[in-house]
Design a protein around this nucleic acid. Sequence first.
DNA 1: CGGGTTACCTGACGGC
DNA 2: TGCCGTCAGGTAACCC
Length: 274
Amino acid sequence: MPELPEVETIRRGFESRLAPPGRRILDVELKRRDLRAPIPKNLPARLRGATITGYRRWGKYLLWDTTRESLLCHLGMTGTWRDAPAGDERDHDHVYVHLEGGTRLAFRDPRRFGFLDVVAAGREREHASLRDLGPDALDKASFHLAHLKSTLLGRKAPVKALLLDQRVVAGVGNIYAAEALFRAGIRPLTPAGRIGPRRLAALLDAVRSVLADAIESGGSTLRDYRGTGGELGSFQHRFEVYAREGQPCTRCERPLRGAIVGGRSTVWCSRCQR
DNA sequence: CGGGTTACCTGACGGC
DNA sequence: TGCCGTCAGGTAACCC
């Protein structure tokens, strides 16, 4: 579900209204620990009494920084956070975070592909899930043309498969990979190492612009995704290729083509993308 | 190592 | 109405 724009929307929701910095964590209640990776049994003890100091995002990962350790969260495909007042319990609520002042935050994830863990602040890079993570797609200081060039050099895999590889760039998922390739005019199946510097520069711009536009729209809601206040994203109304196989290209009207690339459904325009 | 496939889990949806 | 197959925004463990 959530790619970079959705996670960023959630991050902003936490910061501005769900649990602004300064709030204290009274307790963490684990209803179910067997997510993609088991939630450590001692997670509640390690966060109890800590005050939230801020929120960071790296790719699709969200970090709650506190005066103790940081809570690391990945939403998988169906993870959501919401304000869950007493009485609002739902199927697949796996974790409740109790804040000072009576707020209760619920982590709900029906498919259980997400996970939660605790990391020492400043040592995130040592965490198994973050160790090999590439630069954040919106960080201009680390995700730039030189990085793309050197990372894709000599690679024969389809460029779309490598955009989805979080070691190459962190935050791009199936929706925004397809949309970025359309904006850049590049076919998803093109071997990544055969894209010249000018077209790589176009791809870099396209990735940045599509993610920025999607954040501005509050992300994309297909079915599960909700902001922290339950609100829907609206970028799905601006898809040019994703989920539009057979429909006319927004630019040339030709029916869009579809195929499975790297195990993921993929749509593109065979005239506008080369 | 690089590239490709499959599994993990639940729910929604379409066809019959 | 109901059953069954297929598919879904995620990653990671396998295979060759």
